[in-house]
């Protein structure tokens, strides 16, 4: 069984272009508008969509995504609604990969086995669980592998070659390179240092590498595109959702178009 993530990276490799990965939080600012934005993202240029599973205590996230999760939770978001949102998206899009991103506890409370199975059936292609390092991910990995879900691993500026040996055997789909030591939405990444580190990581893996955290503008996207297989933009898109405007979807998608134009 092929996974949409693999299909997209294979196609873009032929095309010679890096993928645009966009992050939004499920249910932000409410269920209706969030689904509207989600559905509009592929046409605006998103190749892969990361859908945030809201959590009360997002310890790797900056103020923008914290506020976004809080808006979603206040609006009644939960894991069942997040999965329903994926099903609704899949009703008219069967090609754009969806990666659920979030923290371990909501998945653990849902039940790792049921979560992996329900997510795969809803049309999810991969998972990024920020606080589940290789030391603790076996309990979930036993269910994601048979469900054909990629459990995407994070690599950071603090990752040494020794550490890569613990991470790579468990990685699939793509590697998510956290381009700053810090939280989402923080200071811009140091591109030359990131590029150098990513080049050294490529010696150890053939997996596509995506860079995220601290990538905010079309300029950032343009700087990164030659060094990576995908760029991830999150907080800068959510900034367009968080403000009360007439059309959240239009603002967010217009911005995504400018990001895509930079690739």
């Amino acid at each position: 069984m092929t996974n949409r993530i693999d299909t997209v990276f294979a196609a873009l490799k032929k095309e010679g272009r890096a993928a645009l990965v966009t992050f939004i939080t499920a249910g932000d600012p409410n269920a209706t508008k969030s689904l509207e934005v989600l559905k509009a993202l592929p046409a605006a240029g998103a190749d892969i969509i990361e859908l945030g599973m809201p959590f009360t205590d997002p310890m790797a996230d900056g103020p923008t995504i914290q506020a976004s999760a809080l808006r979603a939770l206040t609006g009644g978001a939960d894991m069942h609604k997040t999965l329903q949102m994926v099903r609704d998206f899949r009703a008219d899009n069967t090609t754009t990969p969806i990666v659920l991103m979030g923290y371990a506890n909501p998945c653990f409370q849902y039940g790792f086995e049921k979560f992996a199975s329900d997510a795969a059936q809803a049309g999810v292609d991969g998972l990024i669980i920020v606080d589940l390092p290789p030391e603790e991910d076996d309990a979930l990995l036993v269910y994601t592998t048979p469900a054909n879900l990629h459990l995407i691993k994070l690599v950071t500026p603090t990752t040494t070659e020794d550490r890569l040996k613990a991470i790579l055997p468990k990685a699939s789909g793509f590697l998510y390179y956290v381009s700053i030591t810090g939280i989402t939405g923080a200071a811009s990444a140091n591109f030359p240092a990131v590029k150098k580190h990513i080049e050294s990581i490529r010696k150890h893996t053939g997996l596509p590498i995506a860079a995220g955290f601290g990538i905010k503008t079309p300029g950032d996207v343009a700087a990164f595109k030659s060094a990576v297989d995908a760029v991830v933009v999150g907080s800068a898109i959510i900034d367009r959702i968080g403000v009360e405007k007439v059309s959240v979807a239009n603002d967010a998608t217009a911005f995504v178009k400018t990001l895509r134009a930079a690739l």
Binding site: A60, D131, E135, E136, V155, T158
Partner: peptide
């Protein structure tokens, strides 16, 4: 117990 932290913190 365990070590449920972001990868950035693991080396530390």
């Amino acid at each position: 117990g365990g070590r449920y932290v972001a990868e950035t913190l693991m080396p530390l």
